[in-house]
Design a protein around this nucleic acid. Structure first.
Ligand code: FES
Ligand code: FES
Lengths: 143, 143
DNA sequence: ATAAAAACATGATATTAATCATATTTAAGA
DNA sequence: TCTTAAATATGATTAATATCATGTTTTTAT
């Protein structure tokens, strides 16, 4: 469903949501340790997210990664899109070129409603929404 | 979501459902051509499915692969399980060791109901069900 | 100005999944 | 019973992901 890279990216961004802001930044070494993902690997992902303005960063001493208010309103899907590309979730489950109601493959109707629901949720929920759940201990983000 | 291998396997089994029985078998070379999957690749998958009794086969001249009545009542999920393993669909989308309601990850509640629905359907629908839809032109299986 | 600390850019290696190849076994038919 | 046509078993190669490494640029503080 999601690549390892997307999972890691999502974890990292949620960690940033809980522990950073414009004042309190965190560097890749610390993120890596806290979410238990290899430093060089998560660094590459964070750099990509930063380039696409999903997260923020500043170089140099006292620099690091963080989320600003605008970043917090990005949706889950935007992260997934940057890392995995959009088609991955929407493509035909049997690998048909294009997935639609007019010429559905044998399992299209079985999974399409559930999948659409899922996609809509991922497109709607923001980083902030998930961070709030975590803060209220409604959900958990183990290492 | 599904591996390439599972997709191919599913296509192949559906093709068998439409075009074979105990009398009329088909050999791997022909399946390969009709579903547009490399011969050596689909051969390996069919052999695995045959070993697990999801499909039937006989060796030697006039031999080939086919579905018997019992095969037709296998569910979609059984095919996926043989090829991909069950955990692939049920595992936590963030890669958490175990996915459950007690300690849900931040997106568990977003996707869990849809995913459960999907899994139930895959566990319920049989090869025969899908083949019937195809025969009635309710669904399509392009190459 | 300069040194140090951080992200950034780029590329190399390792692991896994996808694909291909081939020798062996089994069954049908002459 | 011998030849041939098929699946079967096993392994090799290739391609895609995941992982790691390192030099470059920017910024802060001396
Ligand atoms: S056509 Fe296959 S999932 Fe939509
Ligand atoms: S705990 Fe992550 S999807 Fe269930």
């Amino acid at each position: 469903m999601l690549s390892n890279s997307s999972k890691y990216a999502l974890k990292a961004v949620l960690y940033l949501a809980l522990h950073t802001d414009e004042i309190n930044k965190i560097m890749v070494k610390d993120i890596s340790e806290r979410i238990n993902v290899p430093k060089a690997y998560i660094a590459k992902l964070l750099q990509e997210l930063s380039k696409r303005k999903i997260i923020s960063s500043t170089k140099g001493p006292k620099g690091g990664f963080y989320l600003n208010a605008s970043n917090r309103n990005e949706t889950i899907m935007q992260i997934i899109e940057v890392i995995d590309g959009k088609k991955k979730l929407e493509s035909c489950i049997l690998g048909l070129e294009d997935c639609n109601e007019q010429k559905p493959c044998p399992i299209h109707r079985l999974i399409s409603p559930s999948r659409s629901k899922m996609i809509t949720l991922l497109e709607t929920k923001t980083i902030n929404d998930l961070a709030t759940d975590l803060e209220l201990n409604k959900t958990f983000l183990p290492v």
